[in-house]
Each structure stands twice: as structure tokens, then as C-alpha cells.
Simulated scan of single mutants.
Amino acid sequence: MRAVREALASLGFDMDRYHQESFTAEPAHAEDVPEDVVPDEQNQAEIAFAISGITAKCNETDSILAAAKALGLVIPSGCTMGICGTCKVRKTEGQVHMVHNGGITDEDVENGYILACCSKPLGRVSVEA
């Protein structure tokens, strides 16, 4: 954006007519996990996809969405970065480490929802998918 401003100014553009907006995502934060618990690649996890009736074993560092895709299960998704909220699913059991970028409300989290793209299972987890 700085380069565009400088180019316009050097070309004699009336900078009073220039408008710029800058957006940033909310700072990432962990939800639904004790502060000292983080996913470990050495630890195995298990995800039960309740609606599909399929259970998968994976590493704690694998996202719920990645595990679903590996099984051929479809969880709608968009950005895969925790921004759009398309992959929101209800967690019915267990704990996840979820670091999102604003794609889910605190109220949804309180009601048991997670974003599959940025939620990593800690132990056994069950989701409605």
C-alpha cells in the first residue's frame, strides 16, 4: 500500500482524494484448552465422526478437517485458516486445541462448536459430521 501511495504522489495525484483501508484478523487465541496443553506430534488422537459413524486415528497435530478429508468425508470449508467459519461443526465429546482468526463467536464456542480447519484433537474427540 505504501508503494501505491508513493507512486500516486509522485505522479501528482491529489492525495486528498486518496482513501485506504487496512484490515487485520483478530489475534489468534486458543479456545477450549487449558493453557499448558498443546498438540504434540508424538501423541495419537482419535476422532469419531458421529453422523458418518466413522472413527479415525491421527496425530494431535492433524486438524479435524484434514482427518475428515483423508477419510473421504466432506466437511464444507472455505479459507482453511479460521476466518470464514464455513467448517463450523459441533463437538460433542473431548477437547481440541483451536486457534482461529475470528471465524467463530464466543457464543458458538460456549455451545460446543469448533472450526474443523483449525481444531486439533487432544485425545479422543467426537464431532457431528
Results as ranks from 00 to 15, higher is better:
S63F: 01
S63G: 11
I64F: 01
I64M: 03
I64G: 02
I64Y: 02
I64W: 02
L65W: 08
L65F: 05
L65E: 08
A66V: 01
A66P: 00
A66K: 10
A67C: 14
A67K: 03
A68S: 08
A68R: 08
A68P: 12
A68K: 03
K69R: 13
K69D: 14
K69T: 02
K69Y: 01
A70G: 08
A70R: 14
A70F: 00
L71M: 11
L71I: 01
G72S: 07
G72Y: 04
G72P: 03
G72C: 13
G72A: 07
L73M: 06
V74Q: 05
V74Y: 01
I75G: 07
I75Q: 09
P76A: 06
P76E: 12
P76L: 06
P76Q: 02
P76V: 00
S77D: 14
S77E: 10
S77A: 14
G78N: 08
C79P: 14
C79S: 12
C79Y: 07
T80N: 12
M81W: 01
M81K: 14
M81S: 13
G82Y: 09
G82W: 09
I83S: 11
I83L: 13
C84V: 10
C84P: 10
C84W: 09
G85P: 10
G85T: 01
G85A: 03
G85I: 04
T86P: 06
T86D: 11
C87F: 04
C87K: 02
C87A: 09
K88L: 09
K88W: 00
V89E: 12
V89M: 13
R90T: 11
K91N: 03
T92G: 14
T92F: 05
T92S: 15
E93K: 13
E93C: 03
E93S: 07
E93V: 06
G94H: 07
G94Y: 04
Q95D: 09
V96Q: 03
V96E: 05
M98F: 03
V99W: 02
H100L: 08
H100P: 14
N101K: 15
N101S: 15
G103C: 14
G103F: 05
G103E: 13
